[in-house]
Amino acid sequence: MAPSAAEHTATAEQFAAPEQQREAAFLGMWTFLATEIMLFGGLFFGIAVYRWLHPDAVREASQHLYKSIGGINTAVLLASSLAVALAVLSGREGDRRSAVRNLLVGAGLGLAFLGIKAYEYYLDYSEGLMPGVGPKPFPLPPDSELFINAYFFATGIHAARADRGWRAGGPCPTPGDRIAAAGSAHRDRDRRALLALRRHRLDFSFPVLYLVGG
């Protein structure tokens, strides 16, 4: 029997059932997340060793970072995570309006995160902390420089990911339209759940970078 239109949009042809498709998609996403954990694990391991080798330089450098801005931004990300999680829930229940509303809240908070991050980078830049550029020479002992570079590297990757993640409705120029369009079919619903999954990677840069000063 030929599949009905609804079944057709629900499941790609290589899958026998929507559940199978969902499991395969989640498995794939977790495989990707595992590589991601390896990436950040290596980075954080490097920072740990560097802290072990140069405790005083790292402590001083860490105290130069804006702990309150980092903390607030982590809270913003947590709130945005909640909004996205609720959006996925609404999507699963078939409540499209609520899903779109929650996604927009999540996207707005994601943008707020990027704005705050840009402001923080600007303050760092003004102090001469950015490698290679800035109005002043590097203000800390030379041993601190690698730690500060690791800070820019880790938070930079994170900000780039957040930029991608705030468009949780799909890769498109107008997120609102795509989010609205994504509300209907099973397949899109799964895709949204997957992007949300990626979105929830927790920000560990806060304790690792801002609080190692102790």
């Binding site: 997340l33 595992a34 694990g41 740990a48």
Partner: peptide, 14 residues
Amino acid sequence: LFAGAALLWLVILF
């Protein structure tokens, strides 16, 4: 299991 494998490799790394 896949998620646990990521954790396992992280533990090995550290």
